[in-house]
Structure formats: structure tokens, C-alpha cells
Nucleic acid binder design. Structure first.
Length: 217
DNA sequence: GCACCGATCGCCT
DNA sequence: GGCGATCGGTGCT
């Protein structure tokens, strides 16, 4: 059976509509040697276009760095930040309107040992990284999946290297919770809007910030 | 040209 | 909980 993919039209919707639907979907990284890494999306944030003061595209900003935000829905937007980390977004809404969903955490599913090797690199460690430390943050998951600027502008609906797949039929993603987005500076009311969605009971989220205490584990 | 800072992480106290 | 790492993007002089 050929792998299932989204249709372009499925992603041609605003980021705050797409984001919750991405919980439970898989992000799949395939290497030239056939190695496959897969994680299930458990945490996302929506960035809502030119008006969104937390977005790289705020006030219509457009540059070589964020050009892919203006591309077709289904395009990957990968950027470099803090001098050492990459973060990955799924571009959505109509082409030319810079909406995107930041992938903040994955539950590792396939290729876990390879992810661990990618995360650990050459650094000697007393204990191997725990599974919950592999993809529990936007920078971590890019390191674990070998996602960098070379995958910026990749088409997640057709790329052989990086793909977005819908949940397996019958997969229950679990209860989701909404919170404000993480790590924003002064963005006025935009910092307060609840544009982050997390699988509330997942052990693989980046932080429990904003989640009800009763859901802490 | 140059100074500031970031959609983060890991290590330290 | 705090802070340094590390460097490209951005905006101002």
C-alpha cells in the first residue's frame, strides 16, 4: 500500500484550525540509505500571518530566511536560531499568506536508536538519553530527525526526505489542551492567546507550562 | 558597519 | 530557577 499523504487542500486552512488536527499525525524522515525515523506529533503552535506579532512574518516581513512561509501549504519552514538550534514549521493557509504551525514535540515511534545517536552526537554520556528527551522540544526534534536548513522549502506532501502523514486509522491521539505559546517576548495580546495545543497526558511534551496541575505526571 | 537579540537547550546552583 | 553558549537576522547609525 502506498503511503498515505494529506492532500494540498487539507492544509489550505488557517494555522489555528490546522494546528489541533496535527496532533496524532506522524512526521517521517527518510534517509538515502533507507533508514526511517518517525515521531507522532504531540505539541504544536499556530502562527497566524502578518497580524501575529510573534511571527517571523509579522507586519508582512519577508526575507530569504522566512521566504518559505509564503509558499504553498504543505511546505516546510525550517529556521536557525540561538546560534545552534533549528525549528520546523508546516506552512498552511493559501499560498502567499504566511501562516505556519511550529512542531514543538514528538513522541518517538520508529528509528529511536538512530534518533538517540543524532541527539547525543560525539558527546560521552553516563546514561543514554531517555526516550522522553529525544524530541521534547522544537530544537531537540530537529536534531533527532536531522532537520536543518537544507530541508527548508521541502514539500511535505511529495518529498522523499521528509513527510507528514495523517494518524493511523483508529489511533486515538488523546485529550488535548490549549495554552499560550512558549518563549515569546513582548508581543502584547498575541503572547496571551492560546495558540499552543498539546496532548495533555503525553510524557513527550516540551514543558507542562500552562497545563492544569491535575494533569502533571 | 555594528549592536542587539532570539518560536532553545543543557548544565549549574 | 538561573544563565551561558553561539551566530545569523534584523534594524539602526
Amino acid at each position: 500500500m502506498p503511503d498515505r499523504r494529506f492532500r494540498r487542500a487539507d492544509l489550505a486552512i488557517p494555522a489555528d484550525e490546522l494546528a489541533p488536527r496535527l496532533l496524532g499525525c506522524s512526521l517521517v524522515r527518510t534517509f538515502a540509505d533507507g533508514t526511517v525515523l518517525r515521531g507522532v506529533i504531540v505539541e504544536v503552535e499556530a502562527y497566524l500571518g502578518p497580524a501575529d506579532q510573534a511571527s517571523h512574518a509579522r507586519d508582512g516581513r519577508r526575507s530569504p530566511r522566512n521566504e518559505s512561509m509564503y509558499a504553498r501549504p504543505g511546505t516546510a519552514y525550517v529556521y536557525f536560531t540561538y546560534g545552534m538550534h533549528h525549528c520546523m514549521n508546516i506552512v498552511c493557509a493559501e499560498e502567499g499568506l504566511p501562516h505556519a504551525v511550529l512542531i514543538r514535540a514528538l513522541a518517538p515511534a520508529d528509528g529511536i536508536d538512530r534518533m538517540r545517536a543524532l541527539r547525543t552526537g560525539d558527546k560521552p554520556r553516563k546514561r543514554p538519553l531517555a526516550d522522553r528527551d529525544l524530541c521534547s522540544g522544537p530544537g531537540k526534534l530537529c536534531q533527532a530527525m536531522a532537520i536543518d536548513r537544507s530541508l527548508d522549502r521541502a514539500d511535505l506532501l511529495n518529498s522523499t526526505k521528509l513527510a507528514l502523514l495523517p494518524p493511523h486509522p483508529g489511533d486515538a491521539p488523546g485529550r488535548s489542551a490549549r495554552t499560550p505559546r512558549i518563549g515569546l517576548g513582548e508581543c502584547g495580546a498575541w503572547a496571551e492567546r492560546r495558540l499552543r495545543w498539546v496532548v495533555a497526558d503525553s510524557a513527550y511534551v516540551s514543558t507542562r507550562q500552562g497545563l492544569p496541575r491535575a494533569e502533571k505526571r
